[in-house]
Design a protein around this nucleic acid. Sequence first.
RNA 1: GCGCUGGUAGCUCAGCUGGAUAGAGCAUCUGGCUACGAACCAGAAGGUCGGGGGUUCGACUCCCUCCCAGCGCGCCA
Length: 576
Amino acid sequence: MNIRKFLEEKTRKHLEKLGVENPPLIKTASRPEHGHYQANGIMAAAKEKGLNPRELAKEVVSSIETEESSDSFNLEIAGPGFINITISKAWINQILSIISKDVRLGVSTQKRKKFLTDYSSPNLAKEMHIGHLRSTTIGDACSRILEFLGHQVIRTNHVGDWGSQFGSLLAYMNKLSKEEIALASELKDLENFYRKASQLWREDQKFADEARKFVVKLQSKDPECLELWSKFIEESMKHCQAVYDQLNISLKQEHVVAESFYNEKLESIVKDLTEKNLIAISDGAKCVFLEEWVGKDGEPTPAIIQKSDGGFPYITTDLAAARHRSQELNIDEALYFVDARQTLHFRQLFHIALKAGFTRKDQSFRHIPNGIILSKEGKPYKTRQGGAVKLAEVLKESISRAKSLVSDKNSALSEQEQIIIAEIVGIGAIKYAELSKNRNTDYVFDWEKMLSFEGNTAPYLQYAYTRIKGILNKSKRSNEKLSSDFSLQDPYEIQLALKLAQFTEAVESVVEDYQPNLLCNYLFELSQFFMTFYENCPVNTAEERIKISRLNLCDLTGRVLKKGLELLGIEVLDRM
RNA sequence: GCGCUGGUAGCUCAGCUGGAUAGAGCAUCUGGCUACGAACCAGAAGGUCGGGGGUUCGACUCCCUCCCAGCGCGCCA
């Protein structure tokens, strides 16, 4: 039950009856004095029709009131032509009673589509760093939400497992095994491994030559080289999976479709483009020239499909992937959760793919960009040594901070329990910090801020949840099935109840433009309303009828909080 | 040079297809724990929404222009 949409449709119907096509534009009221919802569209409609806005509002209101004769809501004309809508207590109680019996908590499903979500996609030559956090958490949350809304979601981890950067890594592996140094322990710290390899590449001429040979060997599928390569890939993938598991990211091994998967298809991409007369040769490279974009010289920008040395750049792999997703997987919508710096690349990619017939017009291929992480100085974030900050380190730090906070606040808990709590709180805090910000803007990485456990953070929401559990436990009714009777009267109860009824609005709003921060905002406001209710409305000491109603309200709040956080990939706790 | 982002309170950020007096959190100040858990609550203070034009009943939101910052623009991914 989406109250906003219900009111929108109702008002629209009556506007049409009056010969007005414009949408009523129902929104949640900007301030409490204006009721719960407000219609903003009457003024614009009146203007277009040359009518007096207040008169039109009056006509709409009387049309609704005479025909609907509903005691669900009250309408009031205000200001230059707003219609303020107040939902009746009776209706709110009724709605809560319905959604409390619903496992979906009032969230309806959408028309089922086949989605593909491409996110995380780390380069396996390096260890995952903090920069991967955004694509990974945002893509994962959106995948969960799309699924919850009834869509089919094909998660895809387009990992980078191919390219010249593997030359020096393989050469270094080869060197180590010749020197009989145990590979396993060296590979434990991939970042260090990568650093050593690239240092050798820069400083040792012989090693650099060896590395180049390995690139050629890899491309020509030399069996020994492939064996080394797959050993490295396997090890690196293990690192990633460990991070996903710890971060509660739903990506699994089965979602990996690596770049190398498309190796055999690249020739045919060039062939197809050539047959469509889209290829031009420039300085020995096969290019698609795009009139739509001009470069520094004012000339059309070429997208290089095959380099003059015969190699394929990554746009060719991406074209092959797009074709595969369109033709083999037959998806309706593909969402690429990738860094905003690649915006131009994706525009060109989708443009060429469509032009070449690799994708269809009725399919949607979209880049969902995210900002990058900056230091306090506003520069891209790096360690003091200039390296990337390991994601695993960030998680470790967060959990350790959560641990000391837990033992500080609640030392009565056993050590074992504290460790479990610290894990959930620490991971939740990091993910929520990412998800609660507008994905589009860059943001400043700051240990203090990122790992803060106060205010609009995951721990605040988790804490609200434990308070609810505390009440339910104390009531001794937590095990027995709660009824769905609501007799809410108090303004604090009504405020919270209406918010609960708006859960579906919040979930649906996320997928309009893939902004999980909207769900975060909702959950935070919900928790704030709960805290206010908690301070003002005693539950367990109230008289029986009110007590039951309030217990139900608490229970439903807990379920919505849990579900909402689950959609963001964050867990809750009974105690913390 | 062209293009894409962004500029909102001291800091970090919301602000939903233009709507009523621009909102949170952090930090600061004041009050509230013999407790349905104070990781909390109540309150105070804090703003010429980068500057300037324009569109209209109404602009943080749309248009123009300028300033500032970041990113991108043929053989890295």
